[in-house]
């Protein structure tokens, strides 16, 4: 009896697995954790109209996205860094979105605007007190991401390169940066435009706010591209997904979820 049921169980598992594998073409995209949630909702929508393709989205970071595309571990690599590493040159890339990096402070902070030079000085530790920026007389707590983060390297490159102060608090995700700035009145950090909320305040940079309109108009300058990579020509299934992301519908979804469309 038990043998029989075990046998039936095994048979049905084998049938189930083969059933899953054959019908749908699998597409795997891996990389940028900042773009991951957006890619996931895009993939969901895409699969509604293309039931024959199964898209899996994985994180891992921009560097891993490029590595995965190179090694073939994922058909599509996702990366959102400004200066692509040399090994990425051999990949076919397409910019599918842009992401503004907002400089954020606590809601209680009276400072509203900084110039790029001031931001550079704050993050490199030359300006250490809010008083010098027209705020209260209190030390500035700089909050940054860990080495290797795509957001951090983009931020540093877009501000023409500075060496982060050693006093900076390091947090390992956009979310924890947001929480730290929400908790600490005297802190300053940066995060992806799509992740802003009303619990903290995005500063205007040179008088320009970090909004979709200003980025599209080219006035807000701390902006990084979001790339999708394929090694050589994409397979039809991959190409269908990339086309969907670039289509009017995909771009509208990107816009609605807080990122900035590519065009």
């Amino acid at each position: 009896m038990t043998h029989k049921s075990l046998y039936i169980f095994l048979c049905s598992m084998v049938l189930l697995m083969s059933g899953c594998g054959k019908q749908r073409t699998a597409v795997t995209a891996a990389g940028s954790t900042a773009f991951q949630p957006f890619a996931e909702s895009l993939a969901e929508k895409f699969m509604e109209t293309h039931p024959e393709i199964a898209v899996t989205i994985q994180g891992g970071g921009s560097a891993l996205g490029i590595q995965a595309a190179l090694s073939g571990a994922a058909q599509i690599g996702m990366a959102d860094i400004v200066d692509l590493p040399p090994e990425a040159k051999v990949l076919k890339s397409v910019v599918v979105a842009r992401d503004g990096i907002a400089v954020v402070v606590n809601n209680a902070n009276p400072v509203k605007d900084l110039t790029e030079a001031q931001i550079r000085d704050v993050f490199s530790g030359k300006i250490r007190n809010w008083k010098e920026l027209g705020g209260v007389d209190h030390a500035i707590t700089v909050v940054s991401r860990e080495a290797g983060s795509g957001t951090r390297s983009s931020f540093e490159q877009l501000l023409k390169g500075f060496v982060l102060t050693k006093d900076a608090i390091i947090q390992d995700s956009n979310g924890t940066i947001r929480e730290t700035v929400v908790m600490d009145q005297n802190s300053i950090g940066y995060l992806s435009h799509g992740l802003l909320n009303d619990k903290l305040k995005a500063l205007t940079v040179n008088g320009v706010a970090c909004t979709t309109e200003e980025v599209l108009a080219g006035r807000y300058t701390i902006v990084r591209p979001v790339y999708l990579f394929t090694k050589g020509d994409a397979s039809p299934a991959c190409q269908a997904f990339i086309d969907y992301v670039c289509s009017a519908e995909g771009q509208k979804m990107i816009h609605d979820s807080g990122l900035i469309p590519a065009k």
């Binding site: 560097a63 891993l64 080495a147 290797g148 983060s149 795509g150 390992d172």
Partner: peptide, 21 residues
């Protein structure tokens, strides 16, 4: 002062580290 321990260093940067890093 804020500090980073050995364990924190591994866990913080593991996600993005490639190659020598």
């Amino acid at each position: 002062d804020s500090v980073r321990t050995l364990t924190a260093n591994i866990a913080l940067e593991m996600g993005y580290a490639t190659g020598l890093h």
